[in-house]
Design a protein around this nucleic acid. Structure first.
Lengths: 162, 162
DNA sequence: TATGAAAGACAACTAAA
DNA sequence: TTTAGTTGTCTTTCATA
């Protein structure tokens, strides 16, 4: 079930995390292997499921979605959790949904244009399900370890990302 | 400061989110534009900072880091928040750090091998800073809207992901 | 099983019209 | 925007340790 990687595999993964569009020859040079060897390792990482895919990192603030928030949800005992997950993941404002052991029952990571927009979405979640309570955490700023390319905070940048 | 995109730009972004390694000709075919036009749009998205970079999606559970958690931090008023951000983002277990308006003061998204590992990290955070309280939410399962390639929950997969 | 080298296929880039 | 030519990358095959 878990996959064992050697240090070179980890090195390749780290390079791809920095920039998934590196060429094989670039990677090969950095890890001191041939292009063919690097390709085989990456293919193996994909086949074994360690690499799930490649994606683009978007600065949502630049698109006008400048507010990030986490909403904790508490449910009634009879709540259909799968249904809440389904409706919330379907919202374009939802970054991710986490079900939680204990209290709260779930955590929803939202990204919205403004606070009015945030309130709309929270109201919608509260109305459409057996939610007994919510608590929303509004993000002031965010940092990530892997994805170092998040925008540096310039004077005209409010710095709210993923 | 914010960038205006037309529907085609959004379409291209959505395609790159699904798979950042699509070729220009693949994208061009799907959005009914020439390769050159697609390249120009992507170049513009990069120059304008909408596209921050490209990264690989890794199934950390497959590497033995099967537990995800969120730890809420509360600080003393005199706390140096920048310092906490710095030390926590430096930990390999940290996925992301969010500073929060209100209570709690910060939210740390962690990924660890097991519960003992989680406790170690939380203890370390508590010890090394002016943290007045923590509350940790352990993730049972996670879903994401954008990154549809997270592992489907097979019989030998505990389904806990990024 | 993992590697390196090399040939052919493919995509990206450039420079025209 | 399209075309064509060039460059670079990817992919496959083969031989090796």
């Amino acid at each position: 079930m878990t996959v064992q990687l050697d240090p070179t595999d980890h090195e390749i993964l780290a390079l791809l995390r920095q920039d998934a569009r590196r060429t094989l020859s670039d990677i090969a040079g950095r890890v001191s292997l041939s292009i063919a060897a690097v390709k085989r390792r990456i293919d193996r990482l994909q086949e074994s499921g360690v690499i799930l895919g490649y994606t683009v990192q978007v600065d949502h603030a630049k698109l006008g979605w400048g507010i990030e928030a986490f909403t904790e949800l508490r449910f009634a005992g009879t709540t259909n959790v799968a249904e809440i997950v389904q409706t919330t993941t379907a919202m374009p404002e939802t970054q991710a949904v986490f079900t939680i052991a204990g209290d709260p029952d779930a955590l929803i990571w939202l990204r919205v244009r403004d606070l009015a927009h945030l309130q709309e979405r929270i109201d919608e979640i509260r109305r459409s399900h057996r939610v007994t309570g919510t608590k929303t955490l509004i993000v002031l700023d965010a940092w990530s370890r892997d994805q170092q390319r998040w925008p540096s905070r310039g004077p005209d940048d409010n710095g709210t990302h993923p």
